[in-house]
Design a protein around this nucleic acid. Structure first.
Lengths: 152, 152
DNA sequence: TCACGATCAGTTGAGCACAATTTAATCGTG
DNA sequence: CACGATTAAATTGTGCTCAACTGATCGTGA
């Protein structure tokens, strides 16, 4: 009604895209949980494994950049993966500040069992692959703009 | 190439809508943080306040249903809001199993200061309101399908 | 009536997330 | 070459999230 949009509506929960994203993230997590339990992984651990399945022998920092997580989150997470026998962490030879994360044979083998996971998610989403790809691209673009705004 | 889509591509991080949602949620959180610090709230606390600003004197269970959170998350969160003087928690009179959460005058007053928050998010998103509304509706629909799949 | 199952909040334990700080190694500039 | 700045990881503290469980209360049917 007024020239400037009334802030009242903006404060309504159901109008907020942030809450939509927040609650969708939790919903994904809950759908993933039973699928990942078969692999003995949590969702963030699964993400770290995805990074390693794409490229092995990665410094912690690179994993953090891919996943937007810092060492405070990754160090204990990777120690748990190491305790589970899926990865090995060793100091970098040429730069001893870094820690290189490498898959063990068991870690590499887990990839086969993980193949069924995305299929299960696809089914639960009730979407076609094309719809999901389109949404994903939009959300990634939004995320990148948010992260860019943070750096300014 | 094959008839059925190869699972290899599905296991790539950048192809996963779940990771897009997950990382966008973190990006939102990081954008919110400096805005909410002025109110002395975390993002989940802000969500609880949004619920209460819409309807006061709500049982914990109703807040949980709105936010998709359980008592294990809400009980300590609401205790912190109570310690901050923003809400009061009292056992329900007619049903003593419930705990009714009510705003204090300070909690009600905080709503005015919160008016600036959504504007800040809108700016950081780099989107028009219409674009955000469209995305929000899509994400909510996806979330609801995921939650429905969980209940089956 | 009262016994039993359902419901609501709270508690505990494990794991994730980030801010702030620490430690160690490396880099860059004088 | 030395020394301050930077970088990588780890650590600590606070808070969120869920699963599993507890305890109290409620409602209903035998």
């Amino acid at each position: 009604m007024a020239k400037k949009p009334a802030p009242a509506g903006f404060l309504q929960l159901d109008n907020q895209i942030c809450f939509a994203v927040y609650s969708a993230g939790h919903a994904f997590n809950r759908v993933y949980k039973p699928l990942l339990e078969k692999l003995g992984l949590t969702y963030p651990q699964y993400l770290a494994m995805l990074v390693l399945w794409e490229r092995d022998n990665v410094p912690v920092k690179d994993i953090g950049e891919k996943l937007f997580l810092d060492s405070g989150t990754l160090t204990p997470l990777l120690k748990r993966l190491e305790a589970a026998g899926l990865v090995k962490r060793t100091r970098g030879a040429e730069d001893e500040r870094t820690v290189i994360v490498a898959l063990t044979p068991q870690g590499r083998a887990l990839r086969d069992k993980a193949g069924a996971v995305p299929q299960g998610i696809l089914g639960a989403s009730g979407c076609t692959v094309d719809q999901l790809v389109a949404m994903k691209d939009e959300i990634v673009a939004l995320r990148n703009r948010l992260n860019k705004a943070l750096g300014e």
